[in-house]
Amino acid sequence: MLDDFLVRAALAGLGVGLAAGPLGCFVVWRRMAYFGDATAHAAILGVALALFFNVSVFAGVLVISILVASLVSTLSGRGLGIDTVLGVLAHSALAVGLVAVSFLEGVRVDLMAYLFGDILAVGKTDVLLVWLGGAGVLGLLWWRWSSLLVSTLSPDLAQAAGLRPDREQLVLTLALAVVVAVAIKVVGALLIAAMLIIPAAAARPLARTPDRMALIASGIGGLSALGGLATAWQFDTPAGPTIVCVATLIFCLSAAFGLMRHRLG
């Protein structure tokens, strides 16, 4: 079954969608959208370094993502203008990565595949990595769920309850780096943040509790991946962007539903 490239693509997309949804909720709740962008864009630099040192792209992206995510975490605690810092980091990481890739002589790099994803080319190892990484992220969120929620609502409240909000921030940083590393093949560095934010935003009008919102976001993420892949196959469009388009469509429907319910009472 895994010999069929479409099955592999579907499984990889589904894995990323399911894991990105709940993590994306925290990205939305904590206003970390730019944080996701910076980490994802830096992944291109990770690709360049991985190819240069001849190690697996997954490892290269993971290491760079963790580094950049930790850097952003540290800077955000220092009272700098955080949106400016992130704006600088998100774009400079991408630019530096692109320049670094151009230095790689003798290696033919299909840059488009890393910028926009190449889901139809994922191999068995990629599928395995996506599911291992995705399961790891979901497991981590499940384990820390309550502490993460309290820390998100109010770090002081968490502290008074004997929790360590800084540690929970680290958990999210790690989870984000793993999602970026497994998602780069599926939707590409430019659109990873979209897979985090759009399903979460789409889930918001449909949920009354954070737990429900995370579950729904996970479902919407998975649905977008499968729906997007099917659509891309049907209309011969690029798969990564089509997945994001389907997620956006679900977001629009959900937002319209939310508005209507609000009007009606």
Partner: peptide, 28 residues
Amino acid sequence: RIGYVPQKLHIEPTLPITVERFLSLPNR
């Protein structure tokens, strides 16, 4: 065991949470 009532607590409009669910944080 500390019961802490903060000065103010801003809840993001993107975070849906009922009073009952809020009371279950961090312990059910």
